[in-house]
Write a protein that binds this DNA or RNA. Sequence first.
RNA 1: GGGAGAGUUCCCGAGUGGCCAAAGGGGGCAGACUGUAAAUCUGUUGGCAGUGCCUUCGGUGGUUCGAAUCCACCCUCUCCCA
Length: 376
Amino acid sequence: MFTLQKKCGNARRGELTTVHGTVQTPAFMNVATCGAIKGGLSAFDLKEIGTQVMLCNTYHLHLRPTDAVVKQLGGLHKMTKWDSVILTDSGGFQVFSLAKLRNIKEEGVYFNSHISGAKIFMGPEQSMQIQSNLGSTIAMAFDECVANPSEYSYTKESAQRTTRWLVRCIDEMKRLNSLDDTINKEQMLFGINQGGIYNDLRIEHMKEIAEFDLPGYAIGGLAVGEPAEKMYEIIEDVEPFAPQNKPRYLMGVGTPVNILEGVYRGVDLFDCVMPSRNARHGHLFTWDGIININNKKYELDESPIDKSCDCPTCKNFSRAYIHHLIKADEMLGMRLAVRHNLHFYNELMQKIRDSLDDGTFESFYNKYKDILCNRI
RNA sequence: GGGAGAGUUCCCGAGUGGCCAAAGGGGGCAGACUGUAAAUCUGUUGGCAGUGCCUUCGGUGGUUCGAAUCCACCCUCUCCCA
């Protein structure tokens, strides 16, 4: 259940209540594709850095360790020791990113496993079954994230198929939630808006899926190569047709500024691999802008990554040490960097929520939309 | 003391007359990364300088139109026999 508490222009402050706890929105979900944050963070680390939602992936967990194993282990919550909200992505993004290994049909998608090469089939029902076995709090509808650029006619056809798939997801989830041995019988299903870069298709599709009165709606298929301005424009065009009393989730986005711009336009939830992946590569976010800790200038820099940050990394370790660790390919370097970046994202969301609460979002937005892009 | 082999750009290492400022790797420097096939990928790595010049393949001299490559001597290192 979602409660919209306050609006500031189009920006929204809300609360999403689930069986695994309440999520204060706007929120950034931390990506743990295979059940762990890459870079070596556990559920305990996530608690320490203020994470509200962990995001795992259906396709990856289906291949390894398999959803059957996860179910036997009691579900993702029990397996990972993360007792708060888990959102599972449906595998729809892998339909896009594993383009060379798949074949899309009406019934679903035929993949070749990127691990073993084995043939696998995933359709809406399979995706729902896997997500049910994983026992996540929120399941995502099985969709197709079309590549950019894609032809208008193909994008339209794909969006219509995604709607037909959504109907099948809804039916299958209803069935699964009523079974006796289902781990989370309160599993929620979010629909996903598609339509590529064609605003009319986006609007048409959002209107269609809004009809189903789902507990949440995502905007998918963005930040796949189109200019950021185009992404913002699509959010603005689609937002009026997304139900006001339901959370809106902008999938796979993005940079701190993308998130700020998204909140500004009415988005409540985000997720992105950027803070963790970039951290592993030495690209760190600070309140003064972005630094590349690999750069020689940090070799003797004894200050923390961000002097105003109170994450466990910044409270204890210097830029010089992290610089050394990452250059030396030490696991600890990646771990410290990932912990900082995710903390930064979580803190960004906290500051956004605070500014919405006390009515200063507009000035927060104006202050940080440029600073966060700085390269320092 | 005798014999065999080796010394290449920051390092390892290819190259045995011109297409060589010199493969490849490492390291260095920088960049990319947006529902994670990503602890990955890309660029660059002698100096000047607008496709040209200069310096460089242990040292010195030589052969040649032309040498990292051939010859002589020297220096250093490794291995084998005494």
